[in-house]
């Protein structure tokens, strides 16, 4: 095996198209290196380290779109003013990924491409209606986030391509969003359940509701039925309870070493109710 460290995107894409399946893209390494050591990824694979391609990192905002480079670290997301102002759920999610050492090198691109069922950045990305910008040697294409997460550790990223970053439409005024995570301890937790909720409100009514979750199905997902139930409401408790119930029908949690399926089910509903409560308070909805 080899460790390849291209300095430019073109160089990286060239290597990737030439080598195909035996080359694993590596950014911060906080997932990939562990998976190699524990035998979840073959040790024979060569590593394509893209951490040196510095123009894939960073956040920018123009023309109503916020662009987040794939190599933007969790730590950067936590303190970037564009993110904390416009996409606070991203910053909140990033702040829960491991400890400082993980946040400092782990990247949003790695978190999304690794596609753990518990990927913390996935719910905010889904709730924000983000688009994944991916590229092979033939140039970039765009994949809606909802079509990106296919199954446990499986994305629709085509072979030979790299995630360059994501594009997020700037949220409308009067939008509240948050990432609410349940873990056992106060930090360092792989989510038992993670919920990104976003409510855009016009005249004290929810115009659009977005709910997305991780750790309750093989892949992170949007909770469409829950969203539909909330749309047009004032986030009153009756509607929210009903939405929480409907949302719970959309998930397929399992029992594992971190939590029981029944607790996860319970938590999805309760987190939706908590989100609605926080949103009402924050948006001054009475």
């Amino acid at each position: 095996m080899q460790f390849l460290a291209p300095r430019t995107l073109d160089e990286a894409l060239g290597m990737l198209s030439g080598r195909g399946g035996d080359l694993r893209v590596l950014a911060g390494g906080t997932d990939v290196m562990i998976q190699r050591m524990t035998g979840q990824l073959p040790r024979s694979e060569s590593l394509l380290y893209i951490g040196g391609i510095t123009d894939l990192a960073g956040v920018s905002r123009s023309d109503g779109t916020i662009r987040i480079g794939a190599l933007t670290t969790h730590r950067d997301l936590c303190c970037d003013p564009v993110i904390t102002t416009h996409l606070p759920s991203f910053a909140e999610a990033a702040a829960t990924v491991g400890g400082w050492q993980t946040q400092a090198v782990g990247t949003i691109g790695g978190n999304l491409c690794n596609a753990s069922p518990a990927a913390d950045l996935a719910p905010p990305v889904l709730a924000a209606g983000a688009v994944m910008v991916v590229s092979g040697v033939d140039g970039p294409t765009r994949i809606p986030a909802e079509r990106f997460f296919v199954d446990r550790r499986l994305t629709s990223l085509p072979e030979g391509q790299i995630l360059l970053g994501i594009e997020v439409p700037e949220p409308p005024a009067n939008t509240w969003e948050s990432y609410l995570k349940v873990g056992r301890r106060g930090a360092m937790e792989v989510a038992q359940v993670g919920l990104a909720a976003r409510f855009s409100v016009v005249d004290n009514r929810v115009e659009t509701a977005r709910l997305a979750v991780c750790s309750v199905a093989p892949a992170p997902l949007r909770l469409h039925r829950g969203e539909e139930a909330l749309a047009g409401s004032t986030l009153d408790s009756g509607t929210v309870s009903a939405a929480a119930r409907r949302a719970t029908e959309e998930i397929s949690p399992i029992d594992d070493q971190r939590a029981s399926a029944s607790y996860r089910r319970m938590m999805v509903g309760r987190l939706i109710m908590k989100a609605a409560r926080l949103a009402r308070r924050s948006l001054g909805m009475g």
């Binding site: 056992r184 301890r185 070493q257």
Partner: peptide, 28 residues
């Protein structure tokens, strides 16, 4: 009291790494 514990399923521990085991942290 709150987090640790090696439970077995069919004689095998279900939590098998320090990460899933859940040691107390400074924040706790």
């Amino acid at each position: 009291a709150l987090w640790e514990g090696l439970e077995t399923r069919d004689g095998l521990y279900t939590r098998r790494t320090l990460e899933s085991y859940g040691l107390p942290l400074a924040v706790d």
